[in-house]
Design a protein around this nucleic acid. Structure first.
Lengths: 254, 254
DNA sequence: CGGTACTTGACTGTAAACAGTTTCCCGACC
DNA sequence: GGTCGGGAAACTGTTTACAGTCAAGTACCG
C-alpha cells in the first residue's frame, strides 16, 4: 500500500495528501482558478480513485478553495478584487485581535526574537531593496501564534493565509510597499514591546487595512474591479498534474 | 434571509442533507459530544452508504464539529470552557468588525427594523421576563448581514453560531443576563443609528466580551475549567438516529 | 495469580462498479 | 436556414466490495 503514492512524508492519510497536492496545484497555477475540474480526469492524473479524491475536494471546499455546483461539477475558486477586500477585512479583525492578545501573552524571549526578525528584514531591504515573502509570513505567523488562541491561529494560518497566497498567484499584484510595510512592522513591534495591547491591535489593523486600501485603490482605477480573472467556461483545467512519475495518463481527447 | 436559518429546503445533495442531519443530531444530543461515532453504524442508522457519509463527515470536520484521529475513528467535538472562550474571542473580533461595517452600510429601513426588533425584545422581557433565543439570534444575524461582507457573514453565521449552539446544548450554561443583554443591545442600536462605526464596533465587542468574561468567571469558580464534558471512551454514541423512516436497522448487538 | 503474546473481531481506508442527470451534438422538421 | 427534439456520451452521485490496521479479549506461560 505504501510506496504507491506517498513519496514524501506528511499526510498520513491519502485524503490529506490529496488535499495538499491539489492545494499546491492551485498555487502553482496547474489548476487555473475559475477552471472546472473533472473528478475522473483528476483522479486518473493523480493515480488514485475517486473516493478519496472526492473527500479531499470536500475538504478544500470547506476552505473555500473549491466551489461545487450540484450535478455540474467543481471549479477552482477565483478571488475577485472585491472578494480579496472582504478577506482582508476579516483578516484585519482577526489578526488585530491576535496582535492585541500577543502583546499581552508572548514571552519576553518571543518578543525579542520577533524584534530580531524585524532587524533582519530591515537589513535585507537595505541590501537587496526587498525582503523575501517568507519573512513577512514568518513575522505575522509568530504574532498570531503569540495570541495563544488555537482557533485564531488555525483560522488565520490555515485558512486565510492560503487564500491570500492563491490570490497573490493569480494576479501578481505585488505592490512595492516594502518601505511602508517595514515602517508598519516597526510600529507593531514597538507597541508589543511596550506591552500595549490596544495600541498593538490598532497598529496591526492599520497595517492590514493599508493593504486593503491599496487593493481598493487599484479597483477604482481598473474599472469596477469585478472579476479580473476570466470566468473561463471551457478550459477544463484538469490535465497536466502529472502524477509523480507513474501513469502519465494521456487522457483528455476531444 | 427568511426564517431564522432556513432549515426548510436546502440540501439538494445527499451529502449536504447528511451533514445537516448530523449537525442536528449533535444539537439534539443524539450524538453525545466527545462520543465516538462508527461510520458503519451511523451509515446503517441513516439508511445511506458510507461514501456520502464520509464526505459529510469531512465537511463537518472542516467546521470543527467532528474530530478525526487516523485509524482510530471520528468523535464529536466537545468544547471545553477554554475552547468556548477562544471561540468567543474570535467572535468578538469578527462581529465587532461586522457591526462597525453595518453601522456604515445598513439602509435606514434595515436600521429601523432592527430598532423595532429591539423594542419587541424589551416588550417580551417585560411580559415574560425573558425573550426567546431566536430573537437574540435574529438580532445578531441582521447586524452581521448588514456588514455587506459575504465572507464575514458566512464565517459568523455558518461556522461560529453553530458551534456556540452546540456548546449551549452540551452545558446548559444559560445565565440570566437578560437585562444586561438588553441594555447592551440598546447601546449597539444607538451607536448604529448615529451611524458611528467606531462606537458600534466598540459596543458590540463589549457585548460579546461580557459573555466571555462570564464564562471565564465560571471557569475560575468550577475548577480549572478544563473539559467539563466527560471524555467518554466507551459510549459509542452512534445509535438512535432512526433513519428518515426507511430501514430502521436494529443493528447494534454485543 | 499476573503478565505477555496471540487471535479475533470490528472499523477505517481504498478501489471499482452502478445509476441518475446533465449536456452536447446531430438530425429532422418548420 | 433556423430551431426544436431525440439520443448518446460523459460526468457526478451513490452503492458495494475488498484490503489493511488497530484494539480488545483470551489463553498460555512464568
Amino acid at each position: 500500500m505504501n510506496g504507491i503514492l506517498n513519496d514524501k512524508i506528511s499526510a498520513q492519510s491519502l485524503v490529506d495528501a490529496l488535499a495538499e497536492r491539489i492545494e499546491a496545484a492551485i498555487m502553482n497555477g496547474d489548476l487555473q482558478s475559475g477552471g472546472k475540474i473533472s473528478e475522473q480526469a483528476l483522479a486518473t492524473s493523480l493515480g488514485v480513485s475517486r473516493g478519496p479524491l472526492r473527500e479531499a475536494i470536500r475538504t478544500l471546499e470547506g476552505r473555500k478553495l473549491l466551489l461545487r455546483t450540484p450535478n455540474i461539477g467543481v471549479r477552482v475558486a477565483s478571488l475577485s478584487p472585491g472578494d480579496l477586500c472582504e478577506v482582508l477585512q476579516v483578516r484585519e479583525a482577526l489578526e488585530g485581535m491576535a496582535c492585541g492578545l500577543a502583546a499581552a501573552n508572548m514571552t519576553d524571549e518571543e518578543l525579542k526574537a520577533l524584534s530580531a526578525l524585524l532587524h533582519q528584514q530591515q537589513k535585507s531591504v537595505q541590501g537587496t531593496g526587498v525582503y523575501p515573502e517568507t519573512m513577512d509570513f514568518d513575522f505575522h505567523f509568530r504574532i498570531v501564534k503569540g495570541s495563544r488562541n488555537a482557533r485564531l491561529v488555525q483560522m488565520l494560518c490555515e485558512d486565510l493565509y492560503y487564500l491570500l497566497r492563491v490570490y497573490r498567484r493569480q494576479s501578481s499584484v505585488t505592490p512595492d510597499r516594502t518601505k511602508q510595510t517595514l515602517r508598519e512592522h516597526r510600529d507593531i513591534v514597538a507597541a508589543m514591546t511596550r506591552r500595549d495591547p490596544v495600541e498593538a491591535e490598532r497598529t496591526m489593523r492599520r497595517h492590514i487595512a493599508s493593504a486593503r486600501l491599496y487593493v481598493e485603490e487599484q479597483m477604482r482605477e481598473t474599472g469596477a474591479g469585478r472579476n479580473v480573472v476570466a470566468r473561463a467556461r471551457k478550459p477544463k483545467a484538469a490535465a497536466s498534474l502529472a502524477g509523480k512519475g507513474r501513469r502519465v495518463a494521456s487522457l483528455r481527447r476531444r
